[in-house]
Design a protein around this nucleic acid. Structure first.
Lengths: 123, 123
DNA sequence: GACTTATTAAACCAAACGGTTGACAAATTC
DNA sequence: GAATTTGTCAACCGTTTGGTTTAATAAGTC
């Protein structure tokens, strides 16, 4: 019921709440990139991209290895897994819409489920 | 590769990037709540809670029905599903860690991956 | 050593955030 | 009708954000 790592979740969700950073993650999914390469698609200054990467790093989504004068960034998806897991708690609310939800809410009492006929569910 | 609803994702992730709002969602998962009920656990002003709820509403995570003078808020999980789906793309990076990942990375280029010994090539 | 490249640091800016207070409006209760 | 409850709105405050520009640093290159 209580979150284990609220600050971590804060950081991850905040990092994801920006289209530029999400795009960077997509790029990093295929292979590593330097800061400059990450900045390029957005006609954004180096410093701007550097800040975004730092946000991703703080969230644990990216790890950097300095190699000579270039900083190579690599996706670190484990942090995403935690946020994903957090969301999974709500899966029941969008998956089995009414049936399972009602069943869940009725968990306390044993009343049989009234057969719904309006949501176009398939057997 | 291109996101379908970037603004929607922005709103959802931003809404989730706050522990207070995440807690509100948890409360709403069990049953509906008024603004005042949502505010109570945080010894926060009505206006403060009202702002948070508005953020959740804008993200499509909460729907409100005015009933007399009280505003009843209900969880709307479908918006979460979309964000969840976005993250699912990265599942392969934390599930089958190295095998599938390396296979994926080698898909395009045939260069053998050097062992993670050291990068220093200069004498 | 001088130049170029890749990146950070620092200072700045306008906008947004999270929160408050005070004034107001609509239901409800007395 | 007056008071209370439930909530919004607008203004404010201090902090953070996303971005810039201008140095400054560190590593290759000539």
């Amino acid at each position: 019921m209580v979150e284990q790592h609220p600050a971590q979740l804060d950081a991850v969700f905040h990092a994801l709440a920006d289209a530029t950073r999400r795009h960077m993650l997509r790029s990093l999914a295929t292979h590593e990139h330097s800061i400059g390469e990450l900045a390029a698609p957005f006609h954004m200054s180096f410093a701007g991209a550097s800040k975004h990467v730092k946000v991703l790093e703080r969230a644990g989504l990216v790890r950097r290895t300095v190699q000579g004068r270039t900083h190579l960034c690599r996706l670190e998806a484990q942090a995403l897994a935690e946020a994903h897991e957090w969301m999974r708690y709500y899966e029941k609310f969008w998956n089995n819409r009414l049936d399972a939800l009602e069943a869940l809410l009725r968990a306390g009492d044993q009343a049989p489920k009234p057969s719904p006929s309006q949501k176009g569910k398939k057997p």
